[in-house]
Amino acid sequence: MGAGHAHKLYRHGHSPVHALPPHCKLAAVFCFVVVVVSTPREAVWAFGLYAVLIGAVAYVARIPAGFLLKRLLIEVPFVAFAVLLPFVAQGERVEVAGLSLSVSGLWGAWNVLAKGTLGVAASVLLASTTELRELLLGLQRLKLPPLLVQIMSFMIRYGDVITDELRRMRIARESRGFEARGVRHWGVLAKTAGALFIRSYERGERVHLAMVSRGYAGSMPVIDEVTASRAQWSYALTLPACALLVCLLGWIL
């Protein structure tokens, strides 16, 4: 598809990672995250190795570090929560710079931060090397119910349309001098949401009629069947395999 159709999370490129079939990438990312989550938190070095692995994939995929780090910012609200953990957790306490912190709370915060960050980084890499439509095809190949995949594809296809509708309503409100300042203005905003629901629902009905008139009978035709060769599978699964090795080492040592 052309540039206008790509979502802003996707970064166009021709790297080996971009070229992999989407379902291989999905499976690899999922296995990687599962392995990371089941690593014991005391094996601090293991998480360093995972970060190196992620960095290597980002290098192969030619994703700049700045891009990756900027997308990691989504984690921020939850980092704030992790910072609180050492103060509220129970167990023995240590003095760090005059503050009394719980040891298990510190471990917990580390655990959540490390695993959460690695999970987000893996997801970001997936989203920035795979087009949306490919991602959906991949989910379908991974035997997700076709109806669910259709619903997702409609959501993605019309997500921007509906968001734009919301934006136009905001512009219309503002051009009439409306400015939401507090609870008193919730009524107007709620009417916006109500109107948006009615418009979305009616658009859904029109879309359905348009589809029926073009011969839709409950399932979408698959026009570009993606298949993966054994080599592509083994290439994609290198990442979780390396991670599994690190994880096993983490349990043994």
Partner: peptide, 9 residues
């Protein structure tokens, strides 16, 4: 289509 549009909403 309807569930998709409601999800988008």
């Amino acid at each position: 289509p309807l569930a998709g549009l409601v999800a988008a909403f």
